[in-house]
Amino acid sequence: MSESPEEVRDHIKLYWKIGIALLVLTVVTVAVSYIEFAVPMAILVALIIAGTKGSLVASYFMHLIGERKSIYWALLLTVFFFLVLIIIPILGHTDTYGVHKTMPNANAPAAEAHD
């Protein structure tokens, strides 16, 4: 809370470095998207880069590094339920009675060919 002015000035330098890293990673993620990966690979790469950027913001700009334990616990709980919210509906989608049929999408021209 009460850092000395020198510490704060050190932090400011760090903030600039993090900012530059975030900008570089933005360029990287755009550049990578021009490489024709298979879709799962592209998703993986994009999410890894976004995850890195996100954790940089959370750790340094939001000062999560060095934050109190109670905040960690609250966030850990949130992350767990976030994953439940994301994963279980997807599992439910893959686990259904019979063959899963999707009706042709009205604006998908290739729908007939797909079947």
């Binding site: 879709v39 994009a46 913001v57």
Partner: peptide, 11 residues
């Protein structure tokens, strides 16, 4: 936004 950008624009 850092997550929205790749998810909506790049994938």
């Amino acid at each position: 936004w850092i997550f929205l950008f790749p998810v909506l624009y790049l994938l």
